[in-house]
Design a protein around this nucleic acid. Sequence first.
DNA 1: ATGAAAGCGCTAACAC
DNA 2: GTGTTAGCGCTTTCAT
Lengths: 341, 341
Amino acid sequence: MKRKITLKQIAETLNVSIATVSKALKDSHEISVKTKAIIKKYAAEHNYRPNTVALNLLNRQTKTIAVILPTFHNNFFVKIFNGIEETANKKGYKLIVIISNGELKKEVESIAMLENGTVDGLLISLSEESQSQQYSQHLQSFIDIAGPIVMFDRVSDAITCDKIIIDDFNCAYNATVHLIKTGCKNIAIVSVLHDLGIVKDRISGYKKALEDHNIPINDKLIKLIKKEYDFETEIKTLLDYTTIDAIIGLEEFSTIETMVIAQSRGYKIPEELSFVGYTNGNLYKYVTPSVTCINQHANYIGKKATEKLIARIEEKETDTTAFETKVIKTNLIYRNSTRKL
Amino acid sequence: MKRKITLKQIAETLNVSIATVSKALKDSHEISVKTKAIIKKYAAEHNYRPNTVALNLLNRQTKTIAVILPTFHNNFFVKIFNGIEETANKKGYKLIVIISNGELKKEVESIAMLENGTVDGLLISLSEESQSQQYSQHLQSFIDIAGPIVMFDRVSDAITCDKIIIDDFNCAYNATVHLIKTGCKNIAIVSVLHDLGIVKDRISGYKKALEDHNIPINDKLIKLIKKEYDFETEIKTLLDYTTIDAIIGLEEFSTIETMVIAQSRGYKIPEELSFVGYTNGNLYKYVTPSVTCINQHANYIGKKATEKLIARIEEKETDTTAFETKVIKTNLIYRNSTRKL
DNA sequence: ATGAAAGCGCTAACAC
DNA sequence: GTGTTAGCGCTTTCAT
């Protein structure tokens, strides 16, 4: 790689001042047509590119946003990221991407790395650990010294900032009601997530739906399976426990895995056992039977989060509006893992 | 957000010079223990963080790598990215991520944005358009003025740089041989990719396998379906055309979609029709029957590409080693969409 | 032990 | 029209 060419070098070879070069390349009217032509020609021939780092230093902004996601092995986050990418790109922002893998340590270390002017703001969906351990001072620290944060989906109440979430309560409620209406009475919940706020909300929505339809709540039907436990064993225990006629999976993996296990045990789906899964995932469409699911409009979440963050970054200090939590509506996509109404 | 605190401000309030503060915070022996203590205390209390942008300017490096991928809606690239992320992180590099969506325009624009000191190097898997249009001057331009490039999977012969690829020829060859050995004779190829080098290699491998087993080659069995055409119609045309007993799908989507269409037409899989798919994708495991596939060791590709790039970035100008193309071995994962040997 | 000065690459206000 | 100067935040060499 050749050494990058700078204004200074151009100025020296052309025997003009740096300022003249700078102005000429900006097509300033202050500079004579002739000088501009010479300078521009030289710059073009030598592939001059203004050094962004220098400009960042000068402007005290980087036009870069950090994005911290738990994983990409989840269609929901991939779609959110697509929404983020499109929006950021349109507004001229670059993205620094970090995968937390659900680990608080990674989250904390990454944020520390970014707290020094590298980025103008942060989009984050919290790691499960940071929620279970209720640790959030790294986030507050970022806000204090680095810039605005917008949280999405997996958010923390401890931090005051803009948030984009889905109405987890209502969509669990609606999913449960749908199952009840199609004749299900023993509805279980299955999840590999546990310590997240969204999990609590979903369970509340589910319970409320049961209550409203006078169906007794049985906590044993709620299986939040931790990493330490064997998923298959837990599911078999659940299926052995009592007659279950419907299962709500809180993410794609649990839903599909449970369905596969149930099928291998001879359950007829949806005749004997109905399934509703969270996230409009790829798998749902292709497995047999295809799975009724909750569409969270992930792309839109990404878009809204990014728009909000950029607005915050660019807002005048004076017109700071109050932080808001935006709730994105969800809807059910009806497929063949639930009975027809 | 409070205004970030700087060395200058610390120096002013503490009535020392900026240099003293800088040295004190680096625990330099030049500074008296007492002064150091005062400065460190103040800095800690005020959450001082050195400004990375200023340091980047000074050091002429950003410890940031750009990653350009066609999409994340493809398990292969998600896994590659995981490999990249882990490796980059371990070495203290940040990642700027760009999704090209297969569009040359996005690729060119993004690279132009990065050509000015924003990143130290570039990891890229080319967009389909840049391969079909054989356009690569944006890449050469990046190498000339911005830093090293390492290409992976979808690479260009026109550019001299390090490359990490899989042995597409051999793995298509092996997949085809496996099908032949399990008794298939009319083997078709289905793909939504077409103008990529990897597609040509895969087809060559497939043809060589047929030749070696004295099976006539019929180009009508190779369906590279462009976006403009309806996938389902094309597949039906193929199935109507002649008796096909095996299909190789060049990516996850084509494989799964074709299998679903074949099943809806009553084909028994693998008894009447076998399937082998590229990429060790999520769907393959969960559909019925599960799909035999080619494992490309995506994570490893990401790891190797990143290691190579960082080595290039950090190498002394003197010990420049020749550019190399590393070929990653693949293997078949046997599942239920192919007959047993 | 502390500080002044130069410089990384650039822009902008202000001379000339 | 063109150049000088100062400064963005930092490090480092070279005084003092």
